[in-house]
């Protein structure tokens, strides 16, 4: 039996008077890919930002490896083993590829950084070719790889990806999802937020469907992909 890595229990998040997340609960087991899908504005990104501490929940709890992390500041969560690839990638555009990766290793002892760089470069050979390049000059796909590589530099036990397919050409989307599956096969646990429900459900072990801040359906990836409701609402058929 796998152990529960992340447990989100009954969180409620507000933007001023707007009740953005309503009693959301879900969990991620070690070794899984879990996806949160839903339309724009359903609360997917808000949920991730609450887990990473950029936003706060009024109620409920978020536990990671059995520890309550709901009150920990975002910059301390990295050393607890959580890393987030934020929506829109948010890489440091004026810094080089290598410097971006070094920032990902900010909490790591400096002795291991060179080795981690090589590990990330072997996953993303394109980044190695461009290591000295200012990252603002990278293509969208390369920037997404850099954002993922940067997150991996901290040896996360849970990698949270927010809309990795956003703004990418279909071929690149497939490539990114292949990489996500590879990472998972190599032992990474992944929480994936996606608008591209088809792609997300095809790689995920389990999924949760969010609608206007609430979890409305849950199931395994294949169950959800076959469900008529989901097909109608999110898969265009």
């Amino acid at each position: 039996m796998a152990t529960t890595l992340l447990n989100v229990d009954g969180i409620n998040v507000y933007y001023g008077a707007i009740h953005a997340i309503k009693d959301v609960s879900f969990h991620v087991e070690e070794g899984e890919i879990v996806t949160l899908i839903g339309a724009n504005g359903a609360g997917k990104t808000t949920t991730l930002q609450t887990i990473s501490g950029l936003l706060r929940s009024k109620t409920g709890s978020i536990t990671f490896e059995g520890k309550n992390i709901s009150a920990i500041s975002p910059n301390k969560l990295v050393s607890h083993g959580l890393a987030q690839v934020p929506e829109g990638r948010r890489i440091f555009l004026q810094m080089t590829v290598e410097e971006n990766l070094e920032m990902g290793a900010y909490t790591q002892p400096s002795g291991g950084v060179a080795q981690d760089l090589e590990r990330v470069f072997s996953l993303f050979p394109r980044l190695k070719e461009r290591r000295r390049q200012v990252s603002g000059t990278l293509s969208g796909g390369e920037q997404q790889m850099l954002a993922m590589g940067r997150a991996l530099m901290s040896h996360p036990r849970l990698l949270m990806l927010d809309e990795p397919s956003m703004g990418l050409a279909p071929l690149l989307v497939e490539q990114i999802f292949e990489i996500i599956q590879n990472l998972n096969h190599n032992g990474s646990t992944i929480l994936l937020v996606e608008q591209n429900a088809q792609m997300a459900l095809s790689v995920a072990h389990r999924g949760y469907v969010l609608e206007t801040g609430k979890v409305v359906t849950t199931g395994t990836g294949s169950e959800l992909i076959e469900s008529p409701d989901i097909k109608r609402a999110y898969l265009g058929g």
């Binding site: 950029l54 975002p74 910059n75 990295v78 050393s79 948010r90 440091f92 810094m95 920032m103 990902g104």
Partner: peptide, 16 residues
Amino acid sequence: RACSEDKAAAQLMGIN
């Protein structure tokens, strides 16, 4: 420099 570009992203890196 990271903070100067994007404070939220810097925080996600573990930068105080």
